[in-house]
């Protein structure tokens, strides 16, 4: 008998545009994924996605304005829905983000930055970049659980024995 599906919980976090907040945030969202039954691989990829989107929002979306980054995450029906908003949205910022995703430059040793969204795109099922009603930049990601992303029975037992 299948157990009834739990109501999805949306986690919403407002954080100052400061890189120091990213490690605990990304680890928290990855831990939520783990508790929701996603595999270690899925959780690691989630950690990277959160990191890259929030880093991007802080470095490029909040350059001129001391503002918050807003992240929301929901795990539902085998999918993670993630949304990151910054408040420095301009048409130029949006164009830059789209260029980074859809026209990435080839790998090079000369660039220290600018690859984060390419990684996010490769690890996600869907990636959408918008300007919100308030002029803020919004990045939405959906990541669908692959068959190998389900927590295996052995992994589940090991995890349960940890708690």
């Amino acid at each position: 008998m299948e157990s009834p599906e739990k109501d999805a919980v949306t986690y919403s976090v407002h954080l100052p545009s400061d890189l120091e907040y990213i490690p605990p945030l990304r680890q928290f969202i990855a831990e939520v994924a783990r508790v929701e039954g996603y595999s270690k691989k899925f959780c690691f990829r989630t950690e990277i996605i959160v990191d890259e989107l929030v880093t991007n929002g802080i470095l490029h979306g909040s350059q001129d304005v001391p503002s918050d980054i807003i992240l929301s995450a929901k795990f539902e029906s085998g999918q993670m829905h993630l949304s990151v908003q910054d408040q420095g949205g301009t048409r130029q910022n949006l164009e830059n983000l789209k260029r980074a995703v859809y026209s990435p430059k080839p790998p090079s040793s000369d660039k220290k930055k600018g690859r984060g969204l390419v990684i996010v795109q490769m690890l996600s099922s869907e990636l959408k970049i918008d300007l919100g009603e308030n002029g803020n930049t919004q990045v939405h990601v959906i990541k669908t659980k692959d068959p190998e992303d389900s927590l295996g029975q052995r992994e589940k037992l090991l995890y349960e024995s940890d708690i």
Partner: peptide, 12 residues
């Protein structure tokens, strides 16, 4: 763990 910023300095 390494993110894109970390990879950037490894390439450097």
């Amino acid at each position: 763990y390494v993110n894109s910023t970390g990879l950037g300095i490894l390439l450097h």
